[in-house]
Amino acid sequence: VTTYKLVINGKTLKGETTTKAVDAETAEKAFKQYANDNGVDGVWTYDDATKTFTVTEMV
């Protein structure tokens, strides 16, 4: 189990959260659900070296 981080660069919501998951795919599903629940829709990137997902909403 690995800890993954999500950085949110939203128009109205900004911040970070973490989740523990067995792999990046599982973490991504959890983060996308979290973003969807919070009304964040944007471009996703993932950095495997730092285990960090970033979602950026276009203005």
Rank of each mutant, 00 (worst) to 15 (best):
K32G: 03
V43L: 14
T45R: 06
I8Y: 07
E57P: 09
A24D: 05
K5E: 03
E57W: 10
L6T: 01
T2Y: 15
D41T: 14
K29M: 09
Q33A: 11
N38L: 12
D47L: 04
D47F: 04
T54E: 05
A49S: 13
V43Q: 08
V22H: 09
F31Q: 00
V22M: 10
E25F: 15
A49M: 13
T56L: 06
D47C: 09
A21H: 03
D41E: 14
F53Y: 06
E25R: 11
V59L: 14
G15Y: 15
L6A: 02
A27G: 02
V43Y: 09
I8E: 01
D41L: 10
N36F: 14
D41F: 14
A49Y: 09
T2G: 07
T56H: 07
T17Y: 15
T54M: 07
E28W: 13
F53M: 02
K14M: 09
V43S: 09
F53A: 01
A49G: 06
K20Q: 14
V59P: 10
Y4H: 02
D47Q: 05
T50D: 05
A24E: 08
G15K: 13
E57V: 07
K20Y: 15
K29F: 07
T50A: 08
T17R: 12
V55W: 02
Y34I: 07
V1L: 08
Y46I: 01
Y46M: 02
T26H: 11
V40N: 02
I8D: 01
T12L: 09
Y34L: 06
Q33V: 10
K32M: 08
A35F: 03
F31A: 02
W44L: 03
T45H: 11
L6N: 01
E16H: 10
E16Y: 12
D41Y: 14
T2P: 08
W44K: 00
I8P: 01
D37M: 11
K14Q: 10
K11V: 13
T26A: 10
T3V: 13
G39K: 08
Y4V: 01
W44I: 02
T50S: 09
K29E: 06
K29L: 11
V1S: 09
T52M: 04
K51T: 03
A49N: 08
T19Y: 10
V55N: 01
T2K: 07
V22A: 11
T12Q: 08
T50P: 02
T2M: 14
T26D: 05
T3M: 10
D47S: 05
D48F: 07
V22R: 07
N9L: 13
V22G: 11
T56F: 07
T3K: 12
W44A: 01
D41I: 13
V43H: 10
A27V: 03
Q33L: 10
F31T: 00
T18A: 07
K14L: 07
D37W: 07
N36P: 01
L6W: 02
T52G: 02
T56M: 05
G15R: 13
F53R: 00
N36G: 09
K32T: 04
K11R: 15
V1I: 09
V7A: 04
D23H: 05
V7F: 08
A24G: 04
A30G: 04
Y46D: 00
T50W: 04
I8F: 07
W44P: 00
A49T: 11
K14V: 09
A27P: 00
T52D: 01
T26M: 14
N38W: 12
V22E: 08
D47Y: 04
K20S: 15
N36V: 12
E16G: 09
T56G: 04
F53P: 00
G39A: 08
E25L: 11
G10Y: 06
T54C: 05
D48K: 08
V7S: 04
F31R: 00
E16R: 07
G39N: 12
D41C: 12
A27M: 01
D47A: 04
G15W: 14
F53E: 00
M58Q: 14
V43C: 09
D48E: 14
F53D: 00
G39F: 07
T17V: 15
Y4K: 00
T52N: 02
W44Q: 00
Y34W: 10
F31W: 01
I8S: 03
K11N: 09
T17G: 04
T45P: 00
